[in-house]
Amino acid sequence: MLDDRARMEAAKKEKVEQILAEFQLQEEDLKKVMRRMQKEMDRGLRLETHEEASVKMLPTYVRSTPEGSEVGDFLSLDLGGTNFRVMLVKVGEGEEGQWSVKTKHQMYSIPEDAMTGTAEMLFDYISECISDFLDKHQMKHKKLPLGFTFSFPVRHEDIDKGILLNWTKGFKASGAEGNNVVGLLRDAIKRRGDFEMDVVAMVNDTVATMISCYYEDHQCEVGMIVGTGCNACYMEEMQNVELVEGDEGRMCVNTEWGAFGDSGELDEFLLEYDRLVDESSANPGQQLYEKLIGGKYMGELVRLVLLRLVDENLLFHGEASEQLRTRGAFETRFVSQVESDTGDRKQIYNILSTLGLRPSTTDCDIVRRACESVSTRAAHMCSAGLAGVINRMRESRSEDVMRITVGVDGSVYKLHPSFKERFHASVRRLTPSCEITFIESEEGSGRGAALVSAVACKKACMLGQ
């Protein structure tokens, strides 16, 4: 009897593995994704193909990295998701002549009506938060230079001027797309009239992360975010950046690689679950690469896999709870928690219980395998993109072996128990001629924006502006 049951459990697990095998990517698959990513990057950089390229390769006008001589107080704003952060950054000489960066910050959550109302409502709310922060720190009387981390696709015309191309991540505030974001912020500050600010720089969160990590390690020339969304930036040779005049030196390019796949480059790798996630998203047909990796989508992918296993009578005796059938019910943090389970399955059992399920031991094991399959594919897909960037940098610099540091931020990278190990191992397999160091950014977005502002202020002083 026991043997029969054991055989049935083994057969069930084997069927589960057959279904989950769809998520496995072979090294040849990853090399294919990497080569296609490089081709799209090239198209994004070139003037004649930029418009139709899915990977936009947006110039950021960040050319210099901090040298350690900029000092002063800077205000930093960070808008990239449902939370908005205001930070005071003091850049100065530390002990023994070292450079020191001290920060104080406060988080504000953005109400739904500000995210989806008008641009005026959104930026009025942001300036209200700045006003509140300055009151708390008794700094209303000071006109501070301000660095703005704005983590949406922007076409820069200068370091302090950028046109919002399109909202992502659930934002829909009308009247912002096609307009200068810094102008919208300046107008809102003017409307309030109770404080003055000098907006000197606007950067993407990947750029802010790279600059913040450069402060720790001067070989950091790539910034990457794996959180709600997924994106990367890197220092490109100016001669390859056709959208900006000049051939000397390097400029940081914001790849906006989340949109890779929007022209069909990933079609052969998309599964039924991916198509369902895409169809029910706020932007169907867009940001397809990001939807395979980002935390906004990972939990939902797992939920759809679990429903398939229920329908195949391989999980929960073929019956799903009402909660499990509800879109968004299986949160991405559950994926991390399930994979963090120590082996007694308590954590998995508790999560499934909150979803109205009474799982068996085998159910718990199957749910864990589903989570591992989805998150491992995410790590491997992400590795193909980064390997594409790094191999490109090595080739354009004609280096036999390139040493490089990548600064990384984002909740999936930082909080998932195995993502970074799987990701690092896969990147290294795909970049055999590179020695890569990964560092995690601390308060990256805010500190990085302030350091970019410090560079901009120093330049302005040198130019006598």
Results as ranks from 00 to 15, higher is better:
D4K: 08
M8K: 14
M8V: 14
A10M: 12
K13E: 13
V16H: 09
E17S: 14
E17Y: 13
L20V: 06
L25D: 02
L25C: 06
Q26W: 07
Q26M: 03
E28Q: 05
K31W: 06
K32P: 01
V33I: 13
M34L: 06
M37T: 01
Q38T: 01
Q38N: 06
K39E: 14
E40H: 02
E40V: 07
D42C: 13
L47M: 14
E48R: 04
E52V: 07
S54K: 14
S54E: 09
S54F: 02
S54Q: 07
V55G: 01
M57W: 01
T60F: 04
V62H: 12
R63Y: 12
S64V: 11
S64T: 13
E67Q: 14
V71F: 05
V71C: 14
V71N: 15
F74V: 12
L75C: 05
S76D: 05
D78H: 15
G81N: 04
T82G: 15
N83F: 13
N83P: 07
F84C: 12
F84L: 13
F84D: 08
V86D: 03
V86H: 00
G94F: 12
G94M: 05
E96P: 06
G97W: 04
Q98K: 11
W99R: 09
W99Q: 08
S100Q: 14
V101R: 06
V101T: 07
V101I: 15
V101M: 08
T103G: 06
K104L: 12
M107W: 09
S109M: 13
P111D: 09
D113A: 13
A114E: 14
G117R: 03
L122H: 09
D124P: 02
Y125F: 15
I126L: 09
S127F: 07
S127R: 03
E128S: 06
C129E: 12
D132A: 11
D135R: 10
K140Q: 15
H141T: 07
P145C: 08
P145V: 08
G147Q: 07
F150V: 14
F150E: 10
F152I: 12
F152T: 15
P153K: 13
E157D: 14
D160W: 04
D160C: 14
K161G: 07
G162C: 02
I163G: 15
I163V: 15
N166K: 14
W167P: 07
G170A: 14
F171Y: 14
K172Q: 15
G175H: 09
G175C: 05
E177I: 11
E177G: 07
E177M: 13
N179L: 14
N179S: 12
N180R: 15
N180D: 15
V182W: 09
V182Y: 07
G183K: 14
R186M: 14
D187N: 08
A188T: 07
I189V: 14
D194V: 09
D194Y: 04
D194R: 02
M197E: 05
M197W: 09
D198Q: 07
V200K: 12
M202T: 04
V203P: 09
N204T: 06
D205W: 05
T206F: 02
T209K: 02
M210D: 00
I211C: 01
S212L: 01
Y215W: 10
E216A: 05
D217R: 05
Q219T: 10
E221G: 09
G223E: 06
G227S: 08
G227A: 04
G229P: 04
G229E: 15
N231P: 03
A232I: 08
A232V: 11
C233R: 01
M235Y: 02
E236N: 00
M238N: 03
M238A: 02
V244E: 08
E245F: 10
D247I: 06
E248S: 13
E248I: 05
G249K: 01
C252V: 04
N254S: 11
T255H: 01
T255W: 04
E256T: 09
W257V: 01
W257H: 03
D267E: 09
E268I: 02
L270N: 03
L270G: 01
L270K: 15
L270A: 04
E272L: 08
D274T: 03
R275C: 11
R275I: 10
D278I: 00
D278E: 03
N283A: 10
N283F: 11
G285C: 03
Q286A: 13
Y289V: 01
E290L: 08
G294V: 06
K296G: 13
G299F: 00
G299S: 04
E300P: 01
E300A: 01
V302S: 07
L304V: 09
V305C: 07
V305Q: 02
V305T: 08
L306W: 01
R308T: 06
R308P: 00
N313C: 12
N313L: 09
N313F: 05
L315S: 02
L315G: 02
H317G: 14
G318T: 05
G318P: 15
G318I: 05
E319S: 12
S321D: 07
Q323C: 13
Q323M: 10
R327G: 12
G328M: 12
G328H: 14
T332M: 12
T332Q: 14
R333C: 08
F334P: 01
F334G: 03
S336W: 07
Q337M: 06
V338S: 06
V338W: 02
V338D: 00
V338F: 04
V338T: 03
S340T: 13
I348E: 05
Y349V: 13
S353W: 05
S353G: 12
S353Q: 04
T354D: 08
L357I: 10
L357S: 14
R358Y: 12
S360R: 02
T362V: 04
D363M: 02
D365W: 08
D365H: 12
I366P: 00
V367C: 08
R369G: 08
C371N: 01
E372D: 09
S373Y: 04
R377K: 01
A378W: 04
A378R: 03
A379S: 13
A384C: 14
G385T: 08
L386P: 00
R394K: 04
R394V: 09
D400R: 10
D400A: 07
V401T: 11
M402A: 13
I404Y: 04
G407N: 01
G407W: 03
G407T: 02
V408Y: 02
D409G: 15
G410Q: 02
S411T: 15
K414N: 03
H416C: 10
S418L: 05
F419A: 00
F419C: 00
F419L: 03
K420S: 10
E421P: 06
A425T: 08
R428F: 12
L430M: 05
L430H: 07
P432S: 09
E435K: 06
E435I: 11
T437Y: 07
S441T: 05
E442F: 10
E442M: 04
E442I: 09
G444Y: 06
S445V: 15
G446F: 14
G448C: 06
G448S: 09
A450N: 07
L451F: 14
L451E: 05
S453I: 02
V455G: 11
A456L: 06
K459L: 05
K459M: 14
K459H: 06
K459E: 06
C461R: 15
L463P: 13
Q465Y: 07
